[in-house]
Amino acid sequence: MTEGMEQRRKERVDRGIKVRTDSLYALLSAGEIAYLALPRLVLILGLLLLPLVVPGMYWQRVITITCIYGLLAVSFDFLAHYVGLVSLGGAFFVGTGGYLAAIANTQMGLSPWLTVPSAALAGGVLCTLLLLPCLPLRGVYFAIISLMYPLFSARVIEALDILGGTDGIMGIDGFPNRIVEQYAPVVLLLLILFGLRRLVTTDFGLVVRGVKDNDQAIRASGINVTYFKAVAVFVSASMGCLGGACLVHIYMWSGISQFALDFSILPIAATVIGGSGTLVGPVLGCLILVPISEMLREFGTLRIVFYALILVAFIIFKSEGLMVWGRRKYHQFERWTRI
């Protein structure tokens, strides 16, 4: 401590309006209601209006894909930061959902209205059953094994030449019309997003979060940890499968590329960039990453390099992510105070 050097520290103070809107009294004034509703409205209206604003079919398609990646990212975020299971194999969910929808559509002739929800549910059950033996594993071990699952599935399909082998399943029906195709992923994403946000604050959600914090204490409380993990995995897997099923109907094709790395790594990168554990952050991350990666498409694999590097940079330098940062700026102001 040098003499005369002024010691300062950064202080963060809640904005007045944040404090006023913490309780029921927020309803007393329009300004305060607006303060609460604004971020949510921006998200909802933004996602709904975006397809109308962007030029051309191509970018509308990009937005649809973004929403599907958004589903995957939210699924990853939920599993990693609320349940404590870091899954590096999001592609496994996508692939399972995709193939199930493809089979339901081509073999059983169900319409997309039925295949998408049934693939999500059946896929969720299937993935949960397959992952069940790994649920006691934690940390690195779960991460490693979840990384193996999509690789394994792809290799098995290749080796056994089942489900269309390397060619995939073709001739899948598309969504009935453009509007459905455009808005189904958007609406699903919004519903799931707000549904999950509600879920994690219920008592059930508290237990699931407790599993992440301290599973020993959960066991000591007479709660079956594996059961809760399984339910959480089901929720997360269903979301992934939902994304996969939508994807299959959009591309009208299902193949082993759905088990590809892209579906695992991009949602993770989006989550880290957007803000881990915020659920909304990952969507934000996807809104940034997916269009950029589309723009870089002509550079081939360079885009993977690009978002791998962004991911590393964010993990190391800005691990809180954009959403946490933005939320802090919205609710608090900072000032330097003398010590």
């Binding site: 991460a143 390099v305 590393v312």
Partner: peptide, 20 residues
């Protein structure tokens, strides 16, 4: 978790960079 993700991303960057 960060270690896994970061090292995985670094590996990915190296490999895909080489490919590119």
């Amino acid at each position: 978790i960060s270690e896994i993700m970061a090292s995985y991303a670094i590996g990915l960057a190296i490999l895909e960079g080489l490919r590119w």
